[in-house]
Nucleic acid binder design. Structure first.
Length: 117
DNA sequence: CATCGAACCAACC
DNA sequence: GGTTGGTTCGATG
């Protein structure tokens, strides 16, 4: 659709969709055995961390896009819309990610997204 | 370290 | 219009 004929709201929506796609592209760069954080991606794309969470939730390719490799910056799991945090944790363990006794991902497995580009 | 509260910003009702 | 998220950060104990 020609930009000039779009309402402001439509332009805004298109921009957000681009952000979402950028998020999906970025996390597909995270290798198995490592995780990154919502905040890391948010800073990289200059959006709010909450927005990143929603981008992952709106993930159109559930299997292809590894949304389980994105966690909270304190090492906590965050959420996982496909199956819950238990599933998320099992997936990560399968890939070699290790957890502390209180259920957080060990620091050494968390990388900043900008270091993967 | 743990907890608290404010800020983030679009989607949803 | 208010509430709600797959959150974060700084301040405070």
């Amino acid at each position: 659709m020609p930009l000039l004929s779009m309402t402001g709201e439509e332009i805004g929506r298109a921009r957000i969709r681009d952000y979402f796609e950028a998020v999906w592209t970025l996390i597909s760069l995270v290798p198995p055995g490592l995780v990154t954080t919502y905040g890391s991606i948010a800073r990289f794309l200059n959006v709010s961390p909450r927005l990143v969470g929603r981008a992952l939730k709106a993930n159109p390719y559930p299997i292809i896009i590894p949304c389980h490799r994105v966690i909270r910056s304190d090492g906590g799991l965050g959420g996982y819309s496909r199956g819950g945090t238990q599933v998320k944790r099992r997936l990560l363990e399968l890939e070699g990610v290790e957890f502390t006794v209180d259920g957080r991902v060990r620091r050494e497995f968390i990388v900043d997204i900008k270091d993967l580009i």
